[in-house]
Amino acid sequence: MNIVTLLKHVYDENQLKIEPSKGDVDFAGVPGKISTFDRNAIEAALRLKQQHGGLVTALTIGSEESIKSIREGLAMGVDKAILIKINSHLQFDALALGNIIAKALEKIQAWDLLLCAEGSTDTYTSLLPGILASKLKLPLITYARSLKIDGKYLTGDRSLERKAVTVQVELPAIVSVVSEINEPRIPTLLQILAASKKEVLVYTLEDLGLSQLEQKYKTIQLSGKGKERKKIVLEGSLHDSVARLVDALVKEGLV
C-alpha cells in the first residue's frame, strides 16, 4: 500500500495582519506553517500504513520555504517527500496546481491512494481533489471521516452537512479527509531529529515538462473582512438571564 499525501506550506493565518480601514492583508514577514488539515491527511496515511504496510510519500508544491513544513510531515512518520519548486503557490489557481500535481504523480512509480485535506487553510477552494480525480480518471471520496481498506477496495464515510454517506471505491483512488477523521500525532524529539535525515526530492516545473502554465483565473485582490460582535451582556438573576438568552438566540435564528 503506497500512499501519497498532499502537503502545503501556507501562511500562518493566526499571524496575518489586516489593515483596519482598507482591509488589506499584510503578508510581509508572516511565517509559514503546514496547512492545518494536511496533518489529518498524513495521520490517516500513517494509520493505514501501520495496518497495511507500504510507504507514505508527501508531495508539495511551493517555494524552498516549504521544506519547513515538509520536515514536520517527515517527523510525523512520512517516509520521503517530493518538493516541486515554484516561487509562490499563490500565483497559481487550483486547475494549474492540479496540472502540476497530476504530472508529478506520473513521476512516482506506483501508488495506490492519494490522501489530501478537504481544503488548505490559505485559499480553501476544496477544488483540488475533484480536479485530480477528473484528470487522472480515478474514483474520488471527498470529506471522508473514516477509511477502511479491504483488499483492493476502500470504504469511506463521507461527512456531509446533514447526513453521512458510506461509499466504496476500487483502488487506486483519491480521498479528501475532514479534521474529525483523527487527531494528528505529535512527533517526539527523536522523530524530529531523524526527519532531517530523510530524503526530500526536489523538482522544478521544467523537470516535469511544464515550462508554461495557463492560468484560468487571477487573484486581483485579497482583503480581510471584519465582523462586529454584538457584545450583549445579560445581567440580573440566573433564571431570568437564561430565559432572555434563549429568547435572544431564537430571535437571531441561531436555535
Binding site: K68, R71, E72, A75, I186, P187, L189, I192, L193, A195, S196
Partner: peptide, 17 residues
C-alpha cells in the same frame, strides 16, 4: 536550529492539548 523551533511548536501543542 530549525529542529528547535519545530520541537518548541510541538511541545506547545502537546501541552495545550
Amino acid at each position: 536550529k530549525p529542529e528547535h523551533e519545530m520541537f518548541r511548536n510541538f511541545v506547545k501543542e502537546f501541552m495545550e492539548r
